[in-house]
Amino acid sequence: MSLFWRLFLLNTAVLIAGAALLLWGPATVSTPFFVTEALILAAGLAVMLLVNAVLLRVGLAPLQRLARAMTTIDPLRPGTRPAVTGNGEVADLIRTFNTMLDRLEAERATSSAVALSAQEAERHRIAQELHDEVGQTLTAVLLELKRVADHAPDAVATALRQVQETTRGSLDEIRRIARRLRPGVLEELGLVSALKSLTAEVPPHSGLTARCHVDTDLPDLTDAVELVVYRVAQECLTNAVRHAHATRLDLSLLRSPTGVELRIRDNGCGLGSAPEGAGIRGMRERALLIGAELTLGPSPGGGTEVRLHVPVATKASTHG
């Protein structure tokens, strides 16, 4: 039955009940009416309106729940669906909304995969250019400075060696940036070595001490899963240094009953009430690509805890 006919029949039933009470009840209306008659009619009208309001509230409750779901559903936290309740057009509307969410989430995952793939390709290209062009140019400058310093007077040679040290520091920084853009250790040595290298390369001036623990019985992960886990860990380290002002960070990659879990805890200032930034949204986007669940919250010892739960996915099952 459509929503129109349901509401129409409910109102009809209320009006028929009111008319029946007037026909067969003891109340009468005279002309001019008495005060008691007006009070009786007012009480009857109030009862009819109350009954009508209750019936409409019950009939429209599924639409109100759907409206609340529309305002609270987060595209970056998929899987939440309003329950299909009600009858007729109301239930059809909720089913249509759930179908629309399924389609939007699938399209978002596809577009995010394309965008992130293009982003990784761009990072790879920039890292290659930094290594091949800027790195080689600075290396040539270092060699030339050394040659000139070897034949220069002592005062000039001292100044040139200072320039050498500055140039060498810039070259090391460029190489570090290139490694962050393109995790070569991830491609060559795997995820475990990449995570250990990531925590070992925290700049000393940041004041952050990072420790890494990895279980020895981890399942085989696909290249896409390893890259997402690495990028999430990388973003957490960056946030701990730049925003959380943490002094200690513990990174763990653990085996769970249904897959693997990346757990990162720091003792920084925490998330607070600030809205999620581009970094956290990027982590959520990456988690969606591999069907992982990302949660952020306060750490037991203060600070922030990030958990990335990845379902088991072997290379054979993915490529098969």
Rank of each mutant, 00 (worst) to 15 (best):
V134D: 05
P219Y: 11
T318G: 02
G86L: 02
M283F: 10
A155M: 08
S30D: 15
L143S: 10
P26K: 05
A233W: 12
A42P: 00
A244W: 11
G59V: 09
V14F: 04
V228Q: 08
R123M: 14
E144F: 00
L296Y: 00
S111R: 12
Q234L: 08
Q136H: 14
T304M: 07
A121C: 12
V228H: 04
L218D: 01
L208E: 13
L21F: 05
L104T: 06
L101V: 08
A67N: 05
V141K: 11
A19T: 09
L41R: 04
L138N: 08
M283A: 10
A292M: 07
L7V: 13
H245W: 10
R108L: 12
A210Y: 15
S30F: 09
R307C: 01
N11P: 07
A200L: 07
G79A: 00
R125C: 14
T80V: 11
L50K: 14
D266T: 12
L221M: 02
M48H: 01
L160W: 00
V58L: 05
A61C: 04
K146A: 05
L9H: 13
A106S: 14
L308F: 06
T85I: 05
A20W: 02
R263I: 03
V229C: 07
L189H: 13
V163F: 06
T71P: 00
L50E: 15
A240I: 11
S112H: 10
T85C: 03
G303I: 13
R65D: 07
G79K: 01
T216K: 11
E226C: 09
F33T: 11
R179E: 09
L254A: 01
L66V: 07
W24A: 11
I290A: 02
E188R: 14
R6N: 03
P32A: 08
G79Q: 02
A27W: 01
G86E: 01
H151L: 15
S170P: 11
V225Y: 03
V232H: 02
T158R: 07
S206E: 08
L249R: 01
A155H: 09
A200G: 10
T222Y: 01
D220L: 01
N98A: 03
R263M: 05
P203V: 13
R123W: 13
A316S: 00
Q164M: 02
A210L: 15
W5Q: 05
A178R: 14
G18T: 08
H151K: 14
V185H: 12
T139S: 14
N267H: 15
S256C: 07
